[in-house]
Amino acid sequence: MTATRLFGTLAHRAAILCFIAFALFPLYWLLKVSVTPNDLLYSEGVRMWPSRTTLDHFRFVLANSEFPRFFANSLIVSGSTALVSTVLAALMGYALSRFQFRGKLWLAALLLITQMFPLVMLVAPIFKILSPLGLTNSLTGLVIVYTAFNVPFASFLMQGFFDGIPSDLEQAAMIDGADRFTAFRHIILPLALPGVAATLGFVFTAAWSEMIFALMLISGSEKATFPVGLLTFVSKFSVDYGQMMAAGVLALIPACLFFLLIQRYLVQGMTAGAVKG
């Protein structure tokens, strides 16, 4: 009995370890290459850890490359996109969750259809639309495009969270003397914080790693975001893997920080105790 249970526990833990190793190995490799000195990169063969490590790549990337600017651009674009998308998605999701209106089904279907198109198809038309408006080669243009692409899915995400909050709650608030929007702000939104956090996280990471539009709409390094900036480490004759990986490691930091910040809302079940059950 105890033996089988022990075996079960071990197998369970081993499976989890395997999964973690599988999922994190590329990140580990990123880190490993970023601290490997250039002269050892090709000479040591495949090794789990280089015989000598260095932070030179990081130093170079931070001091001598344009990477800090790419990084700042990315932060601005992703942060704004996450904020704008989440506000819009919260309003949209609330409407989808609470109101019956004409054309609701069509609207939902339309939102879904936008998610089925390969984005590459839209690059040319969007460029055509944005360029007379002066929104190409601009961070604002990128924020608008990213917001447009992220709002549909984010709305469905938010709708799901709102659906989980009993409508008795805002009705009680409305009877207590709030109008619908006040009830939404005071009662529903605080309860939907886990959803807001999840949506922020989802949109932020989507914008952070987006490449196609950043590449097509931005020319020159002045406004480039970090995924585009990574390409500057690829020259005609060689790829500077060490610096590229160092930049990659640095790019992971904000995403990690962001999730650290919101993780407490992601796991919280705040509606417990609102109604019976």
Partner: peptide
């Protein structure tokens, strides 16, 4: 109004 579910604000 008193609701069947009580509808207390959980936060």
């Amino acid at each position: 109004m008193v609701f069947q579910s009580y509808a207390l604000y959980p936060h």
